[in-house]
Design a protein around this nucleic acid. Sequence first.
DNA 1: GCCGAAGGTGAGCGCTCGCTTAGAGCGGCC
DNA 2: GGCCGCTCTAAGCGAGCGCTCACCTTCGGC
Lengths: 214, 214
Amino acid sequence: MSTAEETTGGEVEPWEQVTPDAARRLLVAAVEAFAERGYHATTTRDIAGRAGMSPAALYIHYKTKEELLHRISRLGHDKALDILRTAARREGTATERLSDAVSSFVRWHAGRRTTARVVQYELDALGPAARAEIVALRRQVDAEVRGIIDDGVAAGEFRVPDVQGTTLAVLSLCIDVARWFNVDGPRTPEEVGTLYAGLVLRMVGAEPAAPAQR
Amino acid sequence: MSTAEETTGGEVEPWEQVTPDAARRLLVAAVEAFAERGYHATTTRDIAGRAGMSPAALYIHYKTKEELLHRISRLGHDKALDILRTAARREGTATERLSDAVSSFVRWHAGRRTTARVVQYELDALGPAARAEIVALRRQVDAEVRGIIDDGVAAGEFRVPDVQGTTLAVLSLCIDVARWFNVDGPRTPEEVGTLYAGLVLRMVGAEPAAPAQR
DNA sequence: GCCGAAGGTGAGCGCTCGCTTAGAGCGGCC
DNA sequence: GGCCGCTCTAAGCGAGCGCTCACCTTCGGC
């Protein structure tokens, strides 16, 4: 059904599009390091070390440390937007599409928490040009969710007094999963996705009977 | 440049308990700098400069840069916990208390966004001992909210299948306000607080009729 | 008028940062 | 074989970091 084959246990590393191999290893190492300690607290020596290379090797594949963050942020936002678009543009009622969108978006933020953390919380470390590019992607993310809610209101499925505010809250709720989700905690990404889909349907005043689609 | 006499929503600067005066000025400067650029990207020279002092003056009042963050985090969590406790322990129905708790908690995260940002997002920069102390405070925050929801379920006001998961989601929603709230944006802290209180009541399945308290 | 404590400064130490440079290793093509 | 181009390393540069030190100023108590 959904082309985005998210199967958060045993998931394929999503960086296969990054070549050559050394560049990908560096990028994966940077994602881990940025997620653990934050962009500013991560040294280029640490990144290169995690990738099994000398500090200088980083600069063969990336001009600066910031370019690494930019690439990660860009790829991550592309992926997040793709997940939401897939859910938003399937056929089905607005209730089904919103449930699908939230549960898959949350699954990604929980299951690929390291990536999501970097993507969502290190935006301010980018320079003005790169940040503007990412902010434009975020506006598209917002538009997808708002579109589903608009549809639901128009169809009489949802009762939402403030569509823009509710959109903001729904996205905020999903994104913050990347901050608190603990891989060793009691919940799987699947469970959090299901829980959150139910909570969001309540937030928009939808009928609580939503079949566990996906 | 900007005087520290911000009174966002009639609220008094909450640092009056910090003495002497120079120590308070340094602390306020550190809050601003940490919120703007993050702990690791902030230099001690920047903090001292904002407070109108030489770099060495910082070390008369604080042993290290980390102690500054620790003090800010401690005071901020104390304040957040105090806000929630006040709402949780007033008299009234669970619906009224939850509405009050969410709206006041959100008002604080929006109105005192700089402080909230540091408090909520720079936890990882603390050492193990200081972090453990703050984590204990967060557990108390969680317990206050869970207590209200428990009461509402017991009283038949709420329908909540997963109390712990819903508590987590409610707190997550409120906390993330500090990430996205924009002082120059279209919403006041009051408005966001009211919006969020309504959304949270829907999340717990409460009757939507909630009087707009205070 | 003198003293000690408290609060401040200018200079700078030792270190680590992001990044650069000179050159080595090596596979592919003529 | 000779050479090129790509990948990578060892060494290290200039800058800026957190923090310290020797010294100065102010001020209440006697």
